[in-house]
Design a protein around this nucleic acid. Structure first.
Lengths: 195, 195
DNA sequence: CGACGCGTTGATAGTTTTCAAGGACTGTGG
DNA sequence: CCACAGTCCTTGAAAACTATCAACGCGTCG
């Protein structure tokens, strides 16, 4: 399946009968609050799964951040597979538990960390998950997307990145790509904001 | 199993080989950051499960908020059970997915809501999960616990509750119990902060 | 090339935190 | 049963952080 940049992959409230794997590109899953505030629940990069946001119905909507190529797996098929093979069942269960653990980590990020800690942790997470070299971070999403993922505003993201640039911790390579110059400093900032 | 108020039920990093059900009392699961900031991941009330905070090892520690009585289920036994009976497997899977959905909801609470929205939503959640009448909220935990659960400070919790009291939305019945006077107003405040 | 959205920067305002102090509640020991 | 100590709760004032509002430059895509 292919989707163009910005197009909707599934809507909030639709039956959650498929699971998706990203072949190339980036996907975001979000929810809107009545007054327009938005939260991005997940960025799915190449090789990652998404669509597991609700028991029977999607509780978030999914959009293509860039042009994307996807593979869709019917949930029913997965369930059959799980029923037949206990090895599959175990790894499926492990996957869900891992997701749950990641979600719990994010509580701490959103609940108890400052803006610069969140941005630093986000960059390190993207490098780890990305496929390129260890010092290049691809940022396919907009500053608004990052802001809504981290519970901040786009202006704060921009200011924080500028501060990192001024401290020679990162270097710009265009808006959507940057290089990590001082990984130790970045990790320190992710753990605890010294400044 | 019995634990006294304030005692540790399991430590962070210990093997997660048991799952617990609360018979009576309240339990909190938390994590500490290096600089002392704390986040409460979950409050487990009477009848609820806890201990599912990590694939193989606990990523949070659990403490008794009040004196508690627990039942412990070995994880291995649960896995055997799941392997043998596909009905159990399905409900187990559904339970995990529900947990995941609840976690995703909390992102929004922590990332995009104001202090009074968080407190209002917290009170409504406790009423729904509690066993007493619909207008009485039991608050077995301290203001610090609530603060660390909602990503705020104890002072902010106290101020928000005072504001609710002044607006005649809630009435005090001692520090650890309160009555909801105007449920509609509370729900409105949980959805969107009008003030 | 032009238009529009996105990104950056500045000034200001608002919310929450921090720091501080007094009061209330709880549990313990006399 | 009462006194006391410690912890928790509440309230106030000041500070810090982030959001909001606004303007401008850039880039990206038709």
């Amino acid at each position: 399946m292919r989707f163009q940049r910005g197009s909707e992959i599934y809507a909030e409230g639709k039956a959650a009968d498929q699971l998706y794997k990203v072949v190339s590109g980036t996907v975001r899953t979000c929810r809107l609050l009545p007054d327009g505030r938005r939260l991005v629940a997940q960025f799915a990069l190449a090789g990652e799964l998404f669509g597991l946001d609700g028991v029977s119905h999607h509780r978030f909507f999914a959009e293509a951040v860039t042009d994307v190529v996807l593979i869709a797996f019917p949930r029913g098929e997965i369930n059959d597979w799980v029923d037949r093979d206990s090895t599959v069942a175990q790894s499926w269960q492990a996957y869900t538990l891992e997701k749950l653990a990641a979600a719990q980590d994010r509580f701490i990020l959103l609940g108890r960390r400052t803006a610069s800690e969140r941005v630093a942790a986000f960059l390190l997470d993207l490098v780890k998950r990305g496929q390129g070299p260890d010092d290049i971070v691809e940022l396919p999403m907009s500053r608004y997307d990052i802001a809504d993922y981290l519970g901040l505003t786009a202006e704060t993201i921009s200011r924080t990145l500028t501060a990192l640039r001024k401290n020679r911790i990162i270097a710009d390579q265009g808006c959507h790509k940057l290089r990590i110059l001082d990984r130790d400093a970045l990790e320190e900032q992710a753990d605890e904001d010294i400044l």
